[in-house]
Design a protein around this nucleic acid. Structure first.
Length: 215
DNA sequence: CTCCCGATAT
DNA sequence: ATATCAGGAG
């Protein structure tokens, strides 16, 4: 199947229809809690992050409070999320910068966010999009996989896929489409065993046939 | 490219 | 047993 512009528009239309009521999976009350949750979410399920942050934010929910907690205590709080030494060190350093340079607030600025330790392009895009309602497409593992399978935006790096998606999707739908692709990746277009049999996009997906049982 | 890393699904 | 999970830094 050759994925024409027409087919991409149809893919986007179906995604928007099926996943119109989706919202962020991570639980947060403000941009700071979102930032911490997204840092913790690397190589970890959102479900596990939500359990961890619920416990953490009860004890410390501001940059100041987390700095007071101390590195060792923070490591224990977030241990279950994996990569916990790196994440704890990065969160402490980030909180330090937020306090010293931004008055304890999270800057609504993509470049400044990316300068924070433990915050790369994907995390900065999530905070801008979800936390500050700015048009952005964060390419995580799900968005990357689904976009490539659909050939909605093919690319061998997250940045290439992000740029492809920005061309294929109207700007006013960037942030919503990011959530559509994540939900689709979680529920249907799974990494290991995609459910092509019950996928609403199977007719417009060039990869679906590859997962059908051979005749 | 490698390393960081525990929990979960298959 | 092993692949995968809302990645980022060196």
């Amino acid at each position: 199947m050759r994925v024409t512009k027409k087919i991409k528009e149809e893919q986007i239309r179906i995604l928007g229809e099926v996943y119109k009521d989706t919202k962020p999976a991570l639980i947060f009350r403000n941009p700071f809690e979102l930032l911490i949750a997204v840092i913790l979410s690397a190589q970890c399920t959102d479900k596990r992050v939500n359990v961890t942050t619920a416990r953490l934010f009860q004890k410390a929910a501001t940059p100041e409070a987390i700095l007071s907690l101390g590195l060792a205590a923070l490591e224990e709080e977030i241990r279950d999320c994996g990569l916990f030494r790196n994440k704890a060190k990065n969160i402490m350093a980030t909180c330090q910068i937020l306090c010293e340079q931004y008055g304890g607030e999270v800057p609504a600025d993509f470049a400044k966010l990316q300068e924070l330790p433990g915050v790369g392009r994907k995390t900065a895009n999530v905070v801008m999009s979800v936390g500050f309602n700015a048009p952005a497409i964060a390419v995580d593992t799900h968005v990357f996989r689904v976009s490539n399978r659909l050939k909605l935006a093919a690319g061998d790096t997250p940045l290439a896929v992000e740029q492809g998606l920005m061309k294929a999707i109207p700007k006013d739908k960037w942030s919503a489409a990011h959530h559509w692709l994540i939900w689709h990746g979680r529920n249907i277009c799974k990494a290991r065993k995609p459910l092509c049999g019950k996928c609403p996009l199977a007719d417009v997906c060039p990869t679906a046939i590859d997962f059908q049982p051979s005749p």
